[in-house]
């Protein structure tokens, strides 16, 4: 049962991922991204990581994607115009190099798979409580310092986007 769900949602994730890149209209791309995020959340759930699954849905599929869609609608982005210049080297080399990269990764995983541990469905049992504990004990400093990062993001948005007062 788990395997069927895994295969189903993994293929949805890959399909949506491809559609995200191929689609010409920004809204269609954004919707595909929601598909990727959602099916990833199901995969996390299958592994037993409920907390991550919930965060994935709330933060990515919820907050971030809503922002994306808002921005696209505000800018009234139309269908992508094909760029005038065709960059031949990147076209000619990009796809084969990507294929080489993927083949290399696949080869590596195949060759080394016996020495790697495997993950089973429902293997994770850590809940929100343990995550909270480790966040405020071992990972206190990164947690706090992230607030500086958020501060910079706000400051940066103001610097770059405020209106000129004249």
């Amino acid at each position: 049962m788990d395997l069927i769900f895994f295969l189903l949602f993994a293929s949805i994730a890959v399909g949506c991922g491809i559609s995200l890149v191929v689609q010409k209209h920004p809204i269609a791309s954004a919707l595909s991204l929601i598909g990727v995020m959602g099916s990833l959340a199901v995969l996390y759930l299958l592994l037993g990581a409920e907390f991550i699954a919930a965060v994935q849905l709330i933060v990515y599929a919820g907050a971030i994607m809503v922002l994306f869609v808002f921005v696209i609608m505000l800018l009234n982005a139309a269908e992508e115009a094909p760029s005038r210049k065709t960059n031949w080297p990147s076209r000619l080399l990009g796809v084969p190099l990507l294929a080489v990269f993927v083949a290399l990764l696949a080869y590596l995983f195949d060759k080394m798979s016996p020495s790697l541990g495997t993950v089973t469905f429902g293997a994770f049992t850590t809940g929100g409580k343990q995550i909270g504990r480790s966040l405020f004990n071992n990972y206190l400093l990164p947690f706090e310092v992230t607030s500086v990062l958020v501060l910079i993001a706000i400051l940066g948005a103001i610097v770059l986007a405020r209106k000129e007062i004249d």
Binding site: L141, P142, T146, V148, L149, I152, G156, V159, L160
Partner: peptide
């Protein structure tokens, strides 16, 4: 932080803080 990090997570956060501030500084004259 990057100079003093002993953890990959701290390294990452340090790099992000430094980089995002740098991106904005580069575009400061709008």
């Amino acid at each position: 932080l990057m100079a003093a990090s002993n953890e990959l997570i701290m390294v990452f956060i340090g790099i992000e803080i430094s980089s995002i501030a740098s991106y904005v500084l580069a575009g400061y004259l709008r």
